[in-house]
């Protein structure tokens, strides 16, 4: 690529001009700082990170997602509003005010809360619920699916029939009923319920992966060398199953956030005293007809940005974690 120096190559004694030229090329290559780097092998995580960096949508998605995480984590502390202080106690009712200086997302009707403050607090809780519930779901799902896939046979049959029958339940109604009776309004119980019902897909995924990995030649090779079951599971099966699991977990965060918003919107999820993106929307539904759009728009946009970011990031992870992919 670089401009080649046109310095003439002097052939050594008994060397043809062409050989001398090749020698010069090789010497130049060996002198370049990239020469050793190319010979050095990169670790798999480093390779994955390189691929991820080149994935434009993944970078955009991560930027969106981590901006929202930052807003959720830091926002409540730097905004000059307190969630539990009614800003204008003497004003009994109000139509709310649109975006303006000092309140860029506007103020809600009735209590005149700052919408930006509601959104950052809601984002924080929604993300927390999404991540925690996904982790619970992944742990249960990986365990159940892993046992079913590795041991196979009767264990597999029984576990998978249980999964099948749970999948026939209309999940949303089950969640609604459970949140109603098991401490509606408490965000932790909502999280646990989503975790306890969200593992089915992951269990199926992990089972399918282990079923196919179990038959790989390298597993046979390890077995033929006398490598034990424990090491086969943790050095051969798990690392190869890890990337689809990471991707599934990432994408399930988005699913839980939407699910929680839905349940809260219907009034069955987290109570109105703790704002989540869903119940902020729920609160706004009566006033939107008065042209009070900002109360609904900003939390809605926050959901869209988070879910979009996670999905892009998940797709990027899926591509980046494939060791066969080229950089």
């Amino acid at each position: 690529m670089d401009e080649r120096k046109d310095a003439p190559v002097t052939p050594a004694v008994g060397e043809s001009g062409q050989d001398a030229y090749i020698r010069a090329e090789v010497e130049e290559l060996e002198a370049s700082p990239d020469y050793d780097v190319a010979l050095e092998s990169l670790g798999q995580w480093e390779l994955a990170w390189r691929r991820f960096r080149k994935h434009r949508m993944a970078i955009v998605g991560s930027a969106l997602f981590f901006t929202m995480v930052l807003a959720g984590v830091v926002g409540p502390f730097i905004l000059p509003f307190d969630l539990y202080t009614i800003p204008y106690p003497d004003v009994i009712d109000s139509f709310g005010r649109g975006p303006m200086l000092g309140h860029p997302f506007g103020e809600t009707a009735r209590l005149q809360w700052d919408v930006l403050m509601l959104v950052v607090n809601g984002t924080r809780l929604s993300l927390l619920i999404g991540v925690l519930a996904s982790i619970i779901a992944t742990v249960i799902g990986a365990l159940v699916g892993g046992i079913a896939g590795y041991f196979g046979g009767l264990v597999d049959t029984i576990l998978m029939r249980i999964v099948d029958s749970l999948l026939t339940l209309p999940l949303l109604f089950v969640v609604l009923v459970f949140t109603k009776f098991l401490g509606s309004g408490n965000w932790l119980s909502v999280t646990i319920i989503f975790g306890l019902f969200g593992w089915l897909g992951i269990a199926r995924l992990v089972r399918a992966i282990l079923l196919s990995l179990r038959e790989e030649d390298y597993v046979d090779a390890a077995r033929a060398a006398g490598v034990g079951n424990f090491r086969i599971i943790f050095r051969h099966l798990m690392p190869n199953a890890l990337s689809p699991i990471i991707v599934a977990t990432t994408l399930s965060v988005a699913g839980v956030i939407i699910g929680e918003a839905f349940v809260s919107f219907l009034g069955f999820g987290v109570g109105p005293e703790t704002p989540t993106l869903g119940n902020i929307l729920s609160g706004s539904q009566d006033t939107i007809i008065n042209g009070n759009w900002w109360w609904a728009f900003f939390p809605g946009a926050a959901i869209v940005v988070i879910v979009l970011g996670i999905n892009f990031m998940g797709d990027g992870l899926r591509d980046a974690l494939d060791p066969r992919a080229k950089i």
Binding site: S41, Q44, E216, D217, Y218, A221, A222, A225, G226, V227, G228, R231, R235, H236, P239, N240, P323, R324
Partner: peptide
Amino acid sequence: VGSLNPRMPVSDIIGEGLMAQ
């Protein structure tokens, strides 16, 4: 392709059997 674990360096692929034995 299938007989070498894609997530292991060659040193582990060959060394694993040695370790087991």
